[in-house]
Amino acid sequence: MSTWLVTGGAGFIGSHLVEALLARGDSVRVLDDLSTGHRHNLPPGVTLIVGDVADPDAVGQAMQGVDGCFHLAAIASVEKGITDWLGTHRANLTGTITVFDAIRRQGGRIPVVYASSAAVYGDAASVPIGETEPCRPLSGYGADKYGCELHARVASHVHGIPTVGLRFFNVYGPRQDPKSPYSGVISIFCERIAAGMAITINGDGGQTRDFVYVADVVAALLAAMALRPADSPVFNVCTGRPTSVAALAALVADLAGRPLDARNGPPRAGEIRHSHGLPDRANAVLGLPDRVTLGDGLARVLHWMTEATR
Results as ranks from 00 to 15, higher is better:
68 G>D: 12
69 C>A: 15
70 F>W: 09
70 F>H: 06
71 H>K: 01
73 A>E: 02
73 A>F: 02
73 A>I: 01
77 S>Q: 06
79 E>V: 14
79 E>Q: 15
80 K>D: 12
81 G>P: 03
83 T>I: 14
83 T>V: 14
83 T>H: 12
84 D>I: 02
84 D>C: 07
84 D>H: 14
86 L>I: 10
86 L>A: 14
87 G>M: 10
88 T>S: 14
88 T>Y: 05
89 H>A: 14
91 A>Y: 00
91 A>N: 11
92 N>P: 05
92 N>G: 04
92 N>A: 02
93 L>V: 08
93 L>A: 02
93 L>I: 12
94 T>K: 04
95 G>V: 00
97 I>D: 07
101 D>T: 11
102 A>P: 01
102 A>N: 04
104 R>H: 12
105 R>S: 08
106 Q>L: 09
106 Q>W: 02
107 G>Q: 10
107 G>R: 07
107 G>L: 01
109 R>M: 12
109 R>V: 09
111 P>G: 06
112 V>C: 13
112 V>N: 04
114 Y>K: 06
115 A>H: 07
115 A>W: 06
117 S>I: 05
118 A>I: 04
118 A>F: 13
119 A>I: 07
120 V>A: 11
123 D>W: 05
123 D>I: 08
123 D>Q: 12
124 A>N: 02
126 S>M: 12
129 I>W: 00
130 G>C: 11
130 G>T: 13
131 E>S: 05
132 T>K: 07
132 T>P: 00
134 P>T: 08
135 C>I: 06
135 C>N: 09
136 R>D: 05
136 R>C: 12
137 P>L: 11
137 P>C: 10
137 P>I: 13
137 P>S: 13
138 L>N: 13
138 L>A: 10
139 S>F: 07
140 G>S: 03
141 Y>W: 03
143 A>Y: 10
143 A>C: 10
143 A>I: 14
144 D>E: 10
145 K>R: 11
147 G>R: 01
147 G>T: 02
148 C>L: 07
149 E>Y: 09
150 L>I: 04
150 L>G: 04
150 L>F: 03
151 H>T: 14
152 A>Y: 05
152 A>F: 11
153 R>A: 13
154 V>M: 09
155 A>I: 05
155 A>M: 08
155 A>D: 05
155 A>R: 01
156 S>H: 03
157 H>T: 11
157 H>S: 12
159 H>Y: 15
160 G>E: 06
161 I>F: 08
161 I>G: 03
161 I>N: 01
163 T>H: 03
163 T>F: 08
163 T>W: 00
165 G>F: 12
169 F>Y: 15
171 V>H: 02
174 P>G: 07
175 R>M: 02
179 K>L: 14
180 S>V: 09
185 V>Y: 07
186 I>H: 01
186 I>M: 13
187 S>W: 05
188 I>M: 09
189 F>V: 00
191 E>M: 08
192 R>N: 09
192 R>K: 15
193 I>C: 04
